[in-house]
Design a protein around this nucleic acid. Structure first.
Length: 486
RNA sequence: CGGGCUGUAGCGCAGUUUGGUAGCGCGCCUCGUUCGGGACGAGGAGGUCGGAGGUUCAAAUCCUCUCAGCCCGACCA
């Protein structure tokens, strides 16, 4: 008898959280590091999650009146340098394109950029597209009738990061970037809050993720923004993760790119612009918020596969069992459920563990017993083997969506409960030190905003590797959340 | 970009001190028995030892240079 249940992932979360994270990604076959420095290769199962996220959120943006478009991946260096704070924020992590041709290296057997093919105008690989979109907006907007202008692109961006981790921080990452222009501050602020609410809806209803919605402190703002709104989430190791942001850019970019419009009364005015995004980082958040010591647990509504049907074959009427499985899969598909029979030539236990590590929300086991009795046996991934249930086939098919919904609701409830339990109240910088010192305390600490003005604040937070996450809306900006963060 | 460590089969490692022509575990392929929470046996495929130069009869091993990755900091979605 083993004293301790064997886990599919080694080490466990408690033993070594960062290593556990890497192993979950490998075990679920989500992504791997690539030959390109700091960049990841997203594998089919991982990309399928992103595709599902894109599919849902893209529709919502279109309903809101956002139009998709595509801007160049290469941005003239001169564009980036126009907005002072923006340059300062991004210049140090930009990859630069300087040549347009390769030639054989005379000193070796490789290739080199041809010296005579050096570009007059250098380009940066976009770290974000405020500048090149701002340039376009200046030409596209002329009258108040052109406003608001709502643009978005799904693309990847490149930031030359010193330290990378798959999904959480990679050189290249995938996202959508929305860039909107309004006539006035009210329009821009309303946009930021509206999109932030869309994010929250998306996170809670599809990803089973929740955090704290709020405003960034000035030092955590996006470079070039007057205000940054965000949702800050909490991972199972207690660290914070910025899940999304919306930025009120005021007229900062309008001034530098000349984004003006003619008002109704014939005057001229600057646009107020916004930008907002969430990224493939959310896949990392799903792992770190939902995963357990057996690996990934996919939130049902974005799970690439929601139900796996495992035929339990023993060489006796295998064809009949397979047919029974296929019928169940077909019935589930009719209800819009992503279900699939695992027909691979593997041993049944191996298929089970594969489904567990990939986090498929619902596992259905069908053998001779089930077929004879017209029933199915199913197990919820989030609850494990204890949840094994046998039910009449028709009853199961009819209730499957309900089971998936229940899994979603339970996952969200667990995330919220974890967040609440690990959010501690404090009153002073002393409380912050007492909680986080000596690496003992984890989670978030919520303190009155006055603590930000404590003269020792910067030194203490730096010393303890703490950052301000946001000033949550729930406290009307009177408190600030402090935590270690990814 | 500073400090530390590591590059040997798909993955994880031994071998390096004391040079002698490459090995183990897992995975993979074949066959058989297995298959409802990680099977076992037998056979088999797979490596210019990160790269370049040097010393030597002989280099994974010694020397020089270089590249890449990881961890810890500073910076970031």
């Amino acid at each position: 008898m083993s004293q301790k249940a064997k886990t599919a992932i080694t080490p466990t979360r408690a033993e070594n959280f960062p290593e556990w994270y890497q192993q979950v990604i490998k075990a679920a076959d989500l992504a791997e590091s690539s030959p390109t420095r700091g960049c990841m290769t997203v594998k089919p199962y991982g990309w399928a999650i992103w595709e599902n996220m894109v599919g849902i959120f893209d529709l919502w943006l279109k309903e809101y009146g956002v139009q998709n478009c595509s801007f160049p991946m290469l941005i003239p260096v001169s564009f980036l340098s126009k907005e002072a704070e923006h340059v300062e924020g991004f210049a140090k992590e930009c990859a630069v394109v300087t040549h347009h041709r390769l030639e054989a290296d005379p000193d070796g057997n490789g290739l080199r950029p041809a010296p005579e093919a050096e570009l007059e105008e250098k380009y940066v690989v976009r770290p974000t597209s405020e500048t090149i979109i701002g340039d376009a907006m200046a030409r596209w907007i002329q009258s108040y009738r052109d406003l608001p202008l709502k643009l978005n692109q799904w693309c990847s961006v490149l930031r030359w990061e010193m330290r990378t981790r798959i999904f959480l921080r990679t050189g290249e990452f995938f996202w959508h970037e929305g860039h909107n222009a309004f006539a006035d501050h009210e329009g821009a602020k309303g946009d930021c809050l509206h999109v932030l609410n869309l994010y929250e809806k998306f996170f809670t209803e599809y990803l089973a993720v929740d955090g704290y919605m709020g405003v960034k402190t000035p030092d955590e703002r996006f470079p070039g923004a007057n205000e940054t709104y965000c949702i800050e989430t909490m991972m199972q190791d207690g660290k914070g993760l910025q899940a999304c942001t919306t930025h009120d850019l005021g007229t900062n970019f309008s001034k530098t790119f000349d984004i003006k419009y003619q008002t109704k009364d014939g005057g001229e005015a600057l646009c107020h612009t916004t930008s907002w995004a969430f990224t493939t980082r959310m896949i990392g958040a799903l792992i770190m918020m939902h995963g357990d010591d057996d690996g990934m647990i996919m939130p049902p509504r974005i799970a690439p596969q929601q139900v796996v049907i495992l035929p339990v074959l023993k060489g006796d009427n295998d064809a009949g069992i397979m047919a029974y499985c296929s019928e169940i899969a077909a019935q589930l598909k009719e209800k819009g459920i992503r279900a699939k029979v695992d027909e691979r030539e593997m041993r049944t236990p191996d298929k089970m563990w594969d489904a567990i590590k990939k986090g498929i929300p619902l596992r259905v086991e069908v053998g001779g017993r089930e077929m004879e009795e017209g029933v199915v046996t199913y197990v919820r991934r989030d609850l494990g083997r204890e949840s094994k249930t046998t039910q009449a086939r028709e009853e199961f098919v009819a209730g499957a969506i309900g089971v998936l919904d229940a899994i979603h609701d339970d996952m969200l409830a667990r995330v919220r409960s974890f967040r609440d339990v690990n959010t501690h109240e404090g009153q002073s910088l002393g409380d912050v030190i007492a909680h986080f010192d000596k690496n003992k305390g984890t989670g978030f600490m919520k303190v009155p905003v006055a603590v930000l003005k404590d003269s020792a604040f910067a030194a203490v937070t730096k010393d303890l590797s703490l950052t301000t996450r946001c000033m949550p809306f729930v406290d009307d900006g009177q408190t600030v959340l402090i935590a270690k963060a990814y």
